[in-house]
């Protein structure tokens, strides 16, 4: 099983410290995540989102932005849980 997310200790380069304001897209995905994992909504759990993100291919894990990853994971979970039909969503394939 791929463990793409398990990065601790791997060789890596200099840290890019550029600050980045969250975009409106980022904020909405963030809100979606907080609300859908809240006890009140409980559409899925934080651990289920993690499990989904952690099962992404390397192309998706590293090719998507942070919030693109989370949106894709939540979309897949909403389909998995029967909240939304698969045909209603256009889920982008792994980025090139």
């Amino acid at each position: 099983m791929e463990r793409t997310h398990d990065l601790g200790g791997l060789p890596a380069g200099k840290i890019d410290q550029t600050e980045h304001e969250l975009t409106f897209f980022d904020k909405r995905v963030d809100a979606l995540y907080v609300l859908l994992t809240s006890p009140k909504k409980a559409a899925f759990t934080m651990d289920e989102v993690r499990r989904t993100v952690e099962s992404f291919s390397q192309a998706d894990y590293f090719g998507l932005s942070y919030y693109e990853r989370w949106l894709k994971a939540m979309s897949l979970l909403l389909i998995e849980k029967g909240q939304i039909e698969a045909s209603a969503l256009d889920i982008p394939k792994a980025s090139s």
Partner: peptide
Amino acid sequence: SRDHSEPRPAFDKLLSQVLAKLDHSGLL
């Protein structure tokens, strides 16, 4: 690098689809 740029249209579209569906079903 993608974390420093605007989201791509395909993801914006997906977000709109998800939000519309959840609003319609009343979940969110």
